[in-house]
Amino acid sequence: MLTSLLVIAGLLFMSQFPVISPVSNVHPDETFGEGPPTTDTDEDGIPDVHETIFEDWINFSSVDGRFVAMEGLNSTVPDANFDTDRDGLNNTEEYCWPYPANCNDPGFSRGLTGTLDENGDRMYLDPRVADSDGDGMPDGFEAWMCDRAGGFDEVTQRYVCPYFDPLNASDQTDDPDEDGFDVNRDGFLTVAEQYTSPEEYRYSMPGNFTHELDGLWCSATLPQGSVLTQWPFITNGANASFVNILSACTTNVTGVVGEDLWLGTDPLLDDSDRYSWDGFAVRPLYPSFGDGMPDGWEVHFG
Results as ranks from 00 to 15, higher is better:
Pro78Trp: 12
Gly140His: 13
Phe141Asp: 01
Asp121Leu: 14
Arg148Gly: 02
Pro232Ser: 07
Gly237Ile: 10
Pro162Thr: 05
Val129Lys: 13
Gly114Tyr: 15
Asn59Pro: 00
Gln194Lys: 15
Thr229Ser: 07
Val183Leu: 06
Phe67Leu: 03
Pro223Gln: 00
Asp126Glu: 02
Asp273Glu: 14
Pro287Val: 05
Tyr95Cys: 01
Ser62Trp: 11
Thr190Arg: 03
Gly136Leu: 04
Phe82Thr: 04
Thr229Val: 11
Val183Pro: 00
Asp44Pro: 04
Met205Val: 02
Val49Pro: 00
Ser241Lys: 08
Tyr275Asp: 01
Gly296Leu: 07
Phe108Trp: 09
Arg122Cys: 08
Arg202Tyr: 01
Pro232Thr: 11
Met205Pro: 02
Trp97Gln: 00
Gly65Glu: 09
Phe13Pro: 00
Val160Ala: 10
Leu285Ser: 12
Phe13Thr: 02
Gly140Arg: 14
Leu6Val: 10
Val19His: 12
Phe32Arg: 12
Glu55Met: 13
Asp270Leu: 06
Gly258Thr: 08
Phe289Ser: 01
Asp139Val: 07
Pro287Gln: 06
Val63Arg: 09
Leu189Tyr: 02
Pro287Met: 04
Phe13Tyr: 05
Asp153Gln: 12
Glu154Asp: 15
Tyr159Ile: 01
Pro294Phe: 13
Trp217Val: 02
Thr250Met: 07
Glu43Lys: 15
Arg66Asp: 02
Arg283Ile: 15
Asp44Phe: 10
Cys146Leu: 04
Ile245Gln: 04
Thr41Gln: 04
Ser288Glu: 13
Ser170Lys: 09
Pro18Trp: 03
Leu216Gln: 05
Ser247Asp: 06
Ala248Arg: 11
Tyr203Thr: 10
Asp153Tyr: 15
Tyr195Leu: 10
Pro287Asp: 03
Ile245His: 05
Asn25Gly: 11
Asp266Cys: 03
Ala69Met: 11
Leu269Gly: 01
Tyr163Leu: 01
Leu12Gln: 08
Asp29Ser: 14
Val63Ile: 10
Pro106Ser: 13
Ala192Val: 12
Trp231Phe: 15
Gln194Phe: 06
Gly264Ile: 03
Leu125Val: 07
Gln172His: 10
Leu246Thr: 04
Ala238Tyr: 14
Asp171Arg: 02
Val183Ser: 01
Ile58His: 09
Gln157Tyr: 15
Asp105Asn: 09
Asp278Pro: 01
Asn90Phe: 09
Glu199Tyr: 07
Phe152Ser: 00
Ala169Arg: 12
Pro106Glu: 08
Ser170Asn: 06
